[in-house]
Design a protein around this nucleic acid. Structure first.
Length: 295
DNA sequence: GTCCAGGCTTTCC
DNA sequence: GGAAAGCCTGGA
């Protein structure tokens, strides 16, 4: 973790940044709104700003930003205060993780906006990534604010709870392609907007208590709540078990069909406070290799 | 209280 | 035609 931060006109450069690979970060399934440019860089909106991220040799370049936004927004969003080399070293004691980390060595866990993450993962249930992305884009364009243009593409913020609480269920279903999840989106937005669920209070709660609160939202079960905890509340001991993680865990550790509860317990005993990182390396590994997938 | 089958929208392979 | 970053409901 020995990178240095350099400021240039309209961009910030992290020199000699090792534990940061845009492809790994944006394609390990934690975020759905990063757009891949032709040059392999990625562009998205967060915190009311459009930013573009690219690796160039040993350096990471953040374009369309400045030092103030980097310090106030991007440093926390990209989890830049955390030493991933140390985490990888610890997890590599496990031979399976050692291999998984080789594939996703540049993964970092983003600290995303809680409401956007909640709705995004409600949409993810029994869904496919291309369609999840499309729904989130449509919702941002239809309900969010115009933020700016970058390389001829326009970017919109994700709408706040009070806006989606007013959305029409049928409209969400038909025009935003969210299917049966429409009623979950509207009702969860209402609960959050009315303060029946206070997302901001979850930062202060231990992981299991925060999960209990999240699971009172309709459309939020064990898997979705763990994703929200890990990807927006810094609960890095959360271990979301989806079909890919289930497969990769069964393939390497259990050698047979195993219930999600058993897998979760096993993971927490094995990886403890680093479970969330282990999950991301395993997920990326399983998906890139298609481990356990039927042909 | 736990466990499990069936249903859910629509797209992608 | 089966599967998809699952969840909810009702019944045993």
């Amino acid at each position: 973790m020995d990178y240095t931060i350099v400021e240039e006109h309209n961009r910030i450069i992290l020199k000699n940044m090792e534990d940061f690979e845009p492809k790994h970060i944006f394609e390990c399934g934690q975020a759905f709104r990063w757009y891949v440019e032709e040059d392999g860089s990625y562009t998205a909106v967060h915190g009311g700003r459009v930013v573009n991220v690219k690796r160039q040799g040993q350096h990471i370049i953040f374009s369309n930003t400045n030092k103030e936004d980097f310090e106030n927004i991007w440093f926390d969003y990209f989890d830049l205060g955390r030493d991933y080399s140390k985490i990888k070293q610890t997890l590599s004691k496990d031979p399976v993780l050692r291999e998984a980390i080789k594939f996703g060595k540049g993964i970092r866990i983003l600290n995303q906006e809680p409401f956007e993450t909640t709705i995004s993962f409600i949409i993810s249930a029994n869904n496919q990534i291309p369609r999840i992305k499309r729904s989130i884009d449509l919702i941002s364009k239809g309900f969010g604010d115009y933020i700016g243009k970058f390389r001829d593409r326009v970017y919109y913020s994700f709408p706040p709870a009070h806006v989606l609480a007013q959305a029409d269920e049928e409209d969400l279903k038909e025009s935003y392609k969210v299917g049966f999840r429409a009623k979950y989106i509207v009702e969860s937005s209402k609960m959050i907007n009315e303060g029946r669920v206070d997302l901001n209070s979850l930062y202060e709660l231990p992981t299991d208590k925060a999960q209990e609160v999240l699971m009172t939202l309709p459309g939020v079960g064990p898997k979705v709540s763990n994703c929200i905890l890990l990807f927006s509340f810094k609960k890095v001991d959360a271990f979301p078990v989806d079909v890919w993680v289930k497969r990769v865990m069964e393939y390497f550790y259990f050698k047979k069909d195993t219930k999600v509860d058993i897998i979760s317990k096993f993971a927490y005993e094995k990886f403890g406070p680093l479970s969330g990182f282990a999950q991301q390396y395993l997920f990326y590994y399983a998906r890139e290799l298609g481990i356990g997938k039927k042909k």
